[in-house]
């Protein structure tokens, strides 16, 4: 009985990942685009040697880093307010207020931004009186959309992390002469750091593999959009390329584990 759910997870999830890994070593018939089941390293070679694949991977990782930074900056004030300033009642209300949009359909949110960023959309309408315009369908626009999409994933762990810091530690710091800023920098930040790393697991890895938001917002290519676009004609190449986010995410998780982030998840 106990083995049943484990078997499910192993067979369906890890089994599928294994099939994907296998298909990265398969050949493609150049004429029919049919998959030929002969072992080859060509797909990996192509991904490492082709400039475009390298550029796209690098661009995507940069995007993930910038989105993570923006989310940390945005999440801290609200998380801090929830954990240390708001009354209990208001805090519970805010948790729900942050949580509900996180569950709202992700495609709908991306589509909402596509509308907002469009030429006749909300943002350009607001900028018009100042004689300004903003090309929303750009890398900067996409950065904004990603930051929006994953923000609740950062707020909630950071809030939980800040909440766990005992008030007595802050009082002790104040008693020892630590000013507000010193206490923040020397006591609160180090203690909240694992929670920030926990949140960054979401913001970083969700950005890394996303193909829907980039497809809706910009014509610029990212890892996700490349995999999505080539999977039809070249599944083995797509499979090999999907090893890039897998490797990056696993490396990120290992670092996160070192930084004690898992206890904050």
């Amino acid at each position: 009985m106990l083995a049943l759910p484990l078997a499910w997870l192993v067979i369906v999830y890890f089994g599928s990942l294994f099939v994907l890994l296998l298909s990265a070593f398969w050949d493609t018939d150049p004429f029919t685009a049919e998959i030929v089941h002969t072992f080859t390293l060509e797909n990996f070679q192509k991904i490492i040697e082709t400039q475009v694949y390298r550029d796209v991977a690098w661009r995507t990782i940069q995007m993930a880093v910038f989105v993570t930074i923006a989310d940390i900056v945005l999440a801290f004030p609200i998380a801090y307010y929830m954990a240390r300033v708001a009354s209990r009642r208001r805090r519970n209300l805010l948790v729900v207020a942050v949580l509900l949009p996180l569950w709202a359909n992700y495609l709908v949110k991306a589509y909402a931004w596509r509308t907002i960023l469009s030429e006749g959309g909300v943002i350009n309408c607001a900028l018009e009186p100042f004689g300004l315009s903003f090309d929303g369908y750009s890398t900067v626009g996409l950065w904004l959309v990603f930051t929006y999409l994953w923000l609740p994933f950062m707020i909630l762990p950071v809030y939980a992390g800040l909440e766990r810091i005992p008030a007595s530690l802050l009082e002790a710091s104040a008693d020892l002469g630590g000013r507000s800023f010193t206490t923040f920098r020397r006591v609160i930040l180090p203690l909240a750091f694992p929670a920030v790393v926990a949140g960054s697991i979401f913001t970083f890895s969700l950005t890394l593999g996303d193909y829907i938001a980039p497809g809706l917002i910009t014509s610029e290519q990212f890892i996700g959009t490349v995999i999505y676009n080539i999977r039809g004609q070249a599944l083995p190449t797509a499979a090999a390329y999907s090893m890039v986010p897998i490797v990056v995410v696993i490396a990120y998780l290992l670092v996160a584990r070192k930084l004690k982030a898992f206890e904050s998840l």
């Binding site: 990942l17 099939v19 697991i201 890895s205 593999g209 999907s242 998780l253």
Partner: peptide
């Protein structure tokens, strides 16, 4: 780790893996 991995791996990887299967 086993629980976090499916969370952290990009959806497109899961999707592609299931499609391949």
């Amino acid at each position: 780790f086993a629980v976090v991995l499916p969370i952290a791996l990009p959806g497109i990887v899961t999707g592609l893996a299931l499609q391949a299967t």
